[in-house]
Structures are given as C-alpha cells and as structure tokens.
Design a binder for these strands. Structure first.
Lengths: 208, 208
DNA sequence: AGACCTTATGACAAGGGTGTCATTTGAAAT
DNA sequence: ATTTCAAATGACACCCTTGTCATAAGGTCT
C-alpha cells in the first residue's frame, strides 16, 4: 500500500524505485535491508521515500505484490497442463523449468529465499498470507492419492511443505555453486528418493 | 581463541560472559547479535570485552567450541550404540532423544538453527569447519549400503545433508508450535517417507 | 502575478553499534 | 613503600540507520 503520490509518479521513476528495492531485498534479508541503500540506488532523496511508502515493510509488501503478479503467469503454465499427468510427472518436468526460471529471475528468486531465511514475526505473517499458489498442486496430489498412486497417510500440504524444505536450500546452493549441474543432479536424486518414499504401499493397493 | 587474559579470569566471570553470549547468539543471528547487549548482560564494561576477545567472531567461535564439547557427549551416546543396529533403527530411536535434548538445551539448539539461518561467508566457513561429528553416522550408512539395506546410488553424505535439511525447519517449528506432539508426528512421517525412499530397490537385490 | 496544492529535498535528532585508548585500579614483587 | 605489570574502565570518535520537518520548487487555475 504505497501512497497515492507514489502511484502518480512517472512510470520510469516508479520502476527505478522498484528495481532498487528488488536489488536490496535480493542482496540481503529484510531485517538487514537498508532504506538508505535503496534511496541511494534509486537516486531519490531520503525524504521522498517516506512520501511514497510508510516504511520498509510497506515497500516490501509492494515489491512482493508486484513479483507475485509475474510469478503467477509462470505457475499457471505448469499447473494448467492437462491433468492427465500425475504429480510425479508434473514435478519431474518442472525441475528443469524451475532452474531455467531461477537463472532468468535470480533476484526474484533470492527474495523468495531470503523470505524463508528471515524468520521474523513480520515475515512469518507475510509468508502465511502469500501461500495461496499451492492450491493447484494440492489438487494434483490429492487426485493421485485417490488413484492410489500416492500413499494416503500423508496430507498433500505436508508433501508440499516437504518439497519446499528440500528445494529451498538447494536453490540457494545452486546460485553459489560452481558446479550447477551437480546441484541439479542432486535435486533429481532428492526427488527420486521422495517419489519412492511417497508411492502407495503395494500391500495397501490402489483400490479406493 | 580468546586472549590469555580471558582464560585467567575467575571462573564465575568467564561463565557469566559465556552465558550472556549464548543468550545473545540464541536470540538472534550472528550478524544481528550485538556485543553491546552481551556486555550489558554479562555486566562487564565494554572495554573489557575487547581485552578478552578480538571481536564478535572470536567470541562466537569460542562459544561454539564450548558447546561442541558438551554436544559431543550426547552424540557419542547414540553412535556408540552397538553396531548391530542399522541406520534406520538408530535414527528412529534418535528422534525422541533429539527432541528431549532440544527441550533441555533450547539455547544451544537455537544457536545451531541460527547458524543455518545466517548464511554469511563467515558462517559458511564456520559450518564447514564444524561438520566433523557426522563421521560416525556416515559409517553406519555405508555399512547399511554394503548390506544392501540402503540403496547404493546415494552417497552417505547426501543422505545426511537431506536429513539435515528436513529436520532443521522442523526443530524450529517445534519451538514455536503450540502443538509440539504434532511436530514430532510430522517428523516421524518425514522419516518414514525417507526410509522408504532410501531402501534398496528389490530388483537390485542386496548381494554385493 | 498571486494563490494554492502537490511534490521534492536534505539537514537534523535520536538511537544503536563498533573498536580504541588514555587513564585508573589492583595486586604482586622487590 | 615503591615499583611494575596486568586488568578494568568508560568516554570518545566514527559509522550506519531511521523517521521527521521546515523549507524550496513546481504546476495549475483564476
């Protein structure tokens, strides 16, 4: 919720501020991000910043909101894929795509990682408010569970959480690693273990 | 590597400083920890601190070193258990014990979590220097792999890393959660998935 | 041109943190 | 008692950050 004043600004200036903020929030955690750095980078006077935003949190939420808009487009391209595919298939195909996207949107991605890193109250709240995009994936998992492809004693949400915990550190490793291919191989291995662990037990059978 | 002066200090004073440091490093990440807070808590003048330690990093390494000493005792009680038990058994038994320990040593535990959270260069270095205690676990895993209990296409190190990635966020959740039992159940579920995913494939057989 | 409203601007106060250093204090040794 | 060395101490200089506010600058409308 930036001020009206901000929205009335010429697009170029808005963009400059947005970019500076993205850069800063990608560089370090929210708690360490500095308005000073942002205004310097955006080349706006300090006073102006407070004419546009109530403070750092305000700016952060705005940035997140803007990023979400772009992210949504990417997400839908996966989850909208026709539903004949099971969860494992979708995820397996998604892996390369995730990393391609990670390469192209390093800053956005870093912001996501920093969100998880910074575990302040503010960030916990913010994260819980933002976790809407999981819906489609949840549906796919539950579908597979009905079909007996995935064990039913694990909630779909739990599975997604598990995946998130697994991929988070690896994406981070991906950025800092010299050998990026090795990281991708590792994540494939992780998923392989996961898939195997999640398959419905033979004894239980698939019959509903 | 505190100074000689520090080591010559009366035990009570040393302890007071140590406790204050533990409290601060448990309260927040290394990068956010404040020497000011520590000296205030320990009730020593600011100048004295610099007579004992070169700086925050120096103090931190000292604290870590002290904690390691205590931690080692706990670790050995598990890994020294007679080796007839496989990795899955050891881990399964360890789960409750880990959480008991987590309850008793909340501050030490928090410091460990904060280590992972703070991903500065200093911390990355420090972590890599400290990862010696894995040795025993690695051995158990490799033993199981030879016996055909665990799939051989995953390195022992990778497995441990995977487990660390899984448990890290959960221990954190454990501390902040109202329903601690649910968290333990969740981690048991995680491990169940993991165990299943790590079992040697039937087709491959156990024969070396 | 004057009035009026919006926006721009940077100096400022306040607060927190770091590392240093000249000086005081303490205790042991001669 | 005096000397001497180790330790204690807190004021100081410096850095960075945040949020505010009085003032300057720009437009627009009459």
């Amino acid at each position: 919720m930036p001020t009206e004043t901000f929205y009335r600004l010429p697009a170029a200036k808005k963009q400059r501020i947005f970019q500076a903020a993205v850069g800063e929030f990608a560089r370090c955690r929210f708690s360490e991000a500095s308005i000073n750095q942002i205004v310097k980078q955006a080349a706006i006077p300090r006073g102006s910043f407070y004419q546009y935003f109530a403070g750092k949190e305000d700016l952060y939420l705005y940035v997140l909101q803007e990023i979400s808009k772009e992210k949504l487009k990417v997400y839908s391209s996966f989850t909208a894929a026709d539903s004949s595919q099971g969860f494992f298939d979708v995820l397996e195909q998604a892996i390369p795509a995730i990393f391609v996207w990670a390469d192209d949107n390093e800053e956005y991605n870093m912001i996501g990682l920093r969100m998880v890193q910074d575990n302040s109250d503010f960030m916990r709240e913010t994260i819980s408010k933002m976790s809407g995009s999981k819906g489609a994936m949840t549906a796919i998992i539950e579908e597979d569970q009905k079909k007996g492809k995935i064990r039913q004693d694990v909630e779909a949400e739990t599975i997604l959480e598990l995946i998130q915990n697994l991929t988070g550190p690896l994406i981070q490793e991906y950025y800092s690693s010299k050998n990026q291919k090795a990281v991708i191989d590792k994540i494939k291995l992780y998923f392989d273990i996961l898939f195997r662990g999640l398959q419905a037990k033979q004894e239980e059978g698939g019959r509903t």
